[in-house]
Nucleic acid binder design. Sequence first.
RNA 1: UGGGGGAUCGUCUAGUGGUAGGACAAUGGACUCUGGAUCCAUUGGCGAGGGUUCAAAUCCUUCUCCCCCAGCCA
Length: 566
Amino acid sequence: MAQRDSIPAPNFIRNIIAEDLKANKNEGRVITRFPPEPNGYLHIGHAKSICLNFNLAAENGGTCHLRFDDTNPSKEEIEYIESIKKDVQWLGFNWGKHLYYTSDYFEKLFDYAVRLIKDGKAYVDSLSADEIRKYRGTLTEPGKDSPYRGRSSGENLDLFERMRAGEYEDGAHVLRAKIDMASPNLNMRDPTMYRIRRAVHHRTGDRWCIYPMYDFAHCLSDSIEGITHSICTLEFEDNRPLYDWFLEELGVHHPQQIEFARLNLTHTVLSKRKLIELVKDQHVTGWDDPRMPTISGLRRRGYTPEAIRDFCERIGVAKRDSMVDVALLEHCLRENLNKKSPRVMAVLNPLRVVIDNYPEGQVEELEAENNPEDPDMGTRKVPFSRELYIEQEDFREDPPKKFFRLAPGREVRLKHAYYVTCVSVIKNEKTGAVTELHCTYDSETRGGWSKDGRKVKGTLHWVSAAHALKAEVRLYDHLFLKENPIEAKDGTDFKADLNPDSLETLTRCRVEPSLADVQPASRYQFLRQGYFCLDSADSSPGLLVFNRTATLRDTWAKIQKAQEKG
RNA sequence: UGGGGGAUCGUCUAGUGGUAGGACAAUGGACUCUGGAUCCAUUGGCGAGGGUUCAAAUCCUUCUCCCCCAGCCA
């Protein structure tokens, strides 16, 4: 564990970079980049890539660029650019002055394309999209040359200039690299470099009506920025020969593309398409719904950047497909929150308790530690009075084995307060539901200690009825029931695995009065319940709304489960 | 039946010829004014077969399984 803080664990990319450094490749520079397309919100899978790229650079005294890969004006929006910048910053990374856009290079890219045309390495094709597909061949059959493949470089140059000038309709022509229509790698069968697309670009407006494709733009953007290690996900392995081809033909700075396996997490989905579908079909309230694996969702849920960074380090980096247990993410979160969250008492499902022998009208301010893990966090005062609320599930009229909480005749400790004994139970005559408990307290146990040394098995959290604040609490659970929600063979889609109980809203909660002036997004441990944070969107001074970030480990729940099984 | 990748405890990941290690999960115990935290222990793995070697997760070989690729998306 201490190793995490000092020497980073080895992974194959760290090893490659270490070897490059040893061989003095790139004169010892390490420059990486995180290149999102601004057409969606960042999620935990992107966080893996962000941590990888920024950490690799930082560990080696290098820099990491943030570059928006904005080559497709019909899909991209400014809203996404802002959210991506915010998320990267929130995660704790700083691109400094290295904020770039592929669209910054459109003019240079055009010049590179012209050079390839002049060298006879690119040509304008006038086949339709449909025809191009047919000419491409299949996985097992080679493609065939387009009838336009033999155009002279003069003709190609003229056509390409006129494409740029806007003389043709969308789709009338494309610029293609002239490589090999019989290549077993489909990417090398004369890939498209430019297409005509009359759309307003969020940065270049209507200055262009031709836009470069990913394969052409990406490698050259990396090259222009002096990137040394271009790290991407596995599905681009087949694109690497093309990445290398453009840079080789143009004789420019040649970064090394390295591919790693993208993150998969149990009980959620991380594909952009599926995430969009959840938002669009209103299975969640938006991109920042606290159940979403998006950075904005995790933030609103109460996750910390430290926890996410720790997680990204612990999952490692490799090339095999993998599915990480979401329990690891939750572990990183709890470990971080346990150390820094102040403890408070909140009753989620209140049950009224009257302390019969406590003087009516009396109020005591009892001292409570804010965090047993960190005495420096100090103490606070909690009011105690004759009428209290405890958690409904902390009382059982007929307690099962190993139930250490309150029951008729049984004595328990109220945290930071007194030992109390249940003397009678009041029930609703019709339903039989327990509506109120009567207890007596031992005035000699103030603060929760007994001088005679007698022990109690259980300690309960509570609030004073007259002093408690009302609050709404949202309990979140995994979005999906199955570990890996995928399309089934019978055609039912991944949404069939949605957890119907992923959100439970409790509106009658009572929290201790010290929470009156909580700051937005501040995080607490509700004693014996879990970690909670104030909801940044729906909470207001008049209505406190808390999100459950994570539960505490619940040993009692395990015991109960085991008992049910017999 | 084309090409490119990948297989190590339940999960993730180290290990590049010399006793297969860590983390999460699980289980048991200690401790505890949170059935939390902490601490200790236990369980459990090299996809399969053949070969080379004193010695193989690692080298050779055959096989099996999984992932990706036929956008004018990235």
